[in-house]
Design a protein around this nucleic acid. Structure first.
Lengths: 216, 216
DNA sequence: TGGCAGCTCGGGCAAATTTCCCAAGCCGGA
DNA sequence: TCCGGCTTGGGAAATTTGCCCGAGCTGCCA
């Protein structure tokens, strides 16, 4: 991490599609100052590769098979809190973005972004700055009326209900299970959605899965 | 289409992510015999670009915003039945593969494939052959032996709506995206639930994820 | 050629759920 | 003690769901 300024930025590429990785690699290396030192196609390999190469920046698609990408972010950050991780994915849901930053990401860029925006984001996070693409900033701005972290702002009961809901349980089943009135569960359901910024039950499930609350 | 053998293969790239297109372009052009003559990021532009350039091969990701990629395949084939279209996407669900070939695709390669497999597939379809990656062949093989997955009982439209819904889109967004009335989307939503036996939106999302329709 | 089956698209309407506002009890911290 | 947050639910309007219907279209099969 020390010789960055003179030798450029070393990058670990994490994406589950080989062709996509190959394409990124070529785009990044054509920049001159960006060097892809390793690739990985899953969370576990990403962690291993990080330990070996200690790259300046990890460019990672968080939608990978197997373990959650967010989990990978947490693992890497746990090992080295100075690690810079740029999430680079097609998703642009506020809940996911917040979850990623919450897990320790330094940047979040969607694949809809112009190539120049992506390479600039890599340079930004390499300098220790936070970076995000315009569309992400817009999404977060829209969402900003309810600031805060994603799951950390949920209480015990809310998390339990979210887990059961994401697991496929109906409102009645949850109420019976927890010995609550259906009305209360409905209110929690609504409350969780507003708190997390999820606008859809499906987004809620995806959030729960991303946070490891449920497995799919 | 006639001078292919001597001048190489002209390719139209269709993918909604700029960076991804840029990467593909570099990978393909490094081959020497493959030339990207145009790019498009949606179905409508793909059709326009095809009319202008009449490329040997269209390399297309069918999961794009706006009109269905399958629709684009049909449009292009309707204009020129000799058009060669190679579907190149992250999805590997049997129903989608079958739908693509049914719409007139010449090949189906997943983004999990090795770059060499992709370029070879492009050359194959340029020669008029059918091509698919190993994993797709495997999926189709499994499918031909199985009693039929849950998704097999869903129509094209139903699958598209399920994908968008599981991806977190609201009913209104899906209706706007597909140019349908909200009521129709609601009906599809209900129909999909009854057909699949899902009793909850969350179960629907899990089902879609399990079938590879969406990644979490 | 006719007919049937299946997909697509939407209207209608009662029942159910969601949305949002509200109140009250409880508990821990300032 | 008081404030704030969690938990629990009521109420009422808005929306969605569940289920029924028909109509247009395409493909298939006799």
């Amino acid at each position: 991490m020390s010789e960055v300024a003179t030798t450029g930025v070393s990058v670990l590429l994490v994406d589950d599609h080989p062709i996509v990785r190959q394409g990124y690699r070529r785009v990044l290396e054509s920049q001159g100052d960006l060097h892809v030192v390793a690739e990985a196609d899953n969370a576990a390999d990403a962690y291993s590769a990080f330990k070996v190469h200690e790259p300046d920046v990890v460019v990672m698609d968080i939608s990978m098979p197997g373990a959650s990408g967010l989990e990978a972010i947490r693992n890497i950050r746990a090992r080295n809190p100075r690690a810079r991780i740029l999430v680079f994915t097609m998703h642009n849901e506020a809940v996911l973005v917040k979850a990623a930053f919450n897990a320790g990401a330094s940047g979040f860029v969607t694949k809809s972004s112009a190539p120049s925006a992506v390479v600039n984001a890599i340079r930004s996070v390499a300098r220790g700055e936070r970076a995000m693409s315009d569309d992400i900033a817009h999404v977060l701005a829209e969402d900003s009326l309810s600031a805060g972290s994603v799951l950390d702002q949920l209480g015990e009961r809310e998390i339990e209900i979210l887990r059961q809901f994401a697991g496929g349980a109906t409102t009645e089943e949850i109420a019976a299970q927890l010995n609550l009135s259906v009305k209360t569960v409905q209110n929690y359901h609504y409350l969780i959605k507003t708190k997390t910024g999820a606008r859809t039950d499906a987004q809620l499930v995806r959030l729960a899965a991303a946070c490891g609350l449920t497995r799919i």
